[in-house]
Amino acid sequence: MSDGHGHDHGHDHDHGHDHDHDEPVEGALPAAALRTRAIESLLVEKGVLTAEAVARGVDWLVSRTPTNGARIVARAWVDPAYKQRLLADAKVAAGELGIDAAQSVTVVALENTAAVHHLVVCTLCSCYPRALLGPPPAWYKSNAYRSRAVVEPRAVMAEFGTELPAEVEVRVVDSTADIRYIVVPRRPAGTDGWSEEQLAAIVTRDSLVGVVQPVAGEPVAV
């Protein structure tokens, strides 16, 4: 096994504890960091990859933030024709705002309404619309979220402070294939007359996954 060496954390102690309560701290393993560096240097040395290609990958990843998703939602809130184009093809609609979603095969926007509330999960791994929103939050990748979201979505949302009436259909969407999902939350009351920029500022990352809903709060200065 390639994963059998180089890691010195307690094998004997951990073995068989499938539902241990110590979810690992992301990034806490120096052994993994070292192996990453070793593999990177060997791949570059052998000409399999260039250092520039790796640097481009880092640049791409850090250039992707939920701000992109928030801009898309804010535009959809103020422009019904844009919203229709977004629901028809989210990659094309993102492109209209200068956001390049090429790295995702297919992106689908799910509109939350008075009748249906979408909540996105990836039970098998951590599929996420990275091209639009950046890397997924740690909680999205956690074993607990992946296990619980499909079976008790209302309890999971309640932990995020979201309570929905029983007459709203909670629709969990499990990203099991090449489709990446972004939620278009409902525009909150109290935002009449807000500018697109002010609206974008209340569209949080977590609302684009569906665990929370945007709230009006104070208009954000731009």
């Binding site: 539902h19 039970t123 098998l124 791994c125 740690a138 074993n143 607990a144 992946r146 296990s147």
Partner: peptide, 17 residues
Amino acid sequence: HDRGGLPDDRPIDRAEH
């Protein structure tokens, strides 16, 4: 990796990383 619906009583750890 096939985790959907596995018994899990842990709260979601919302710490940012």
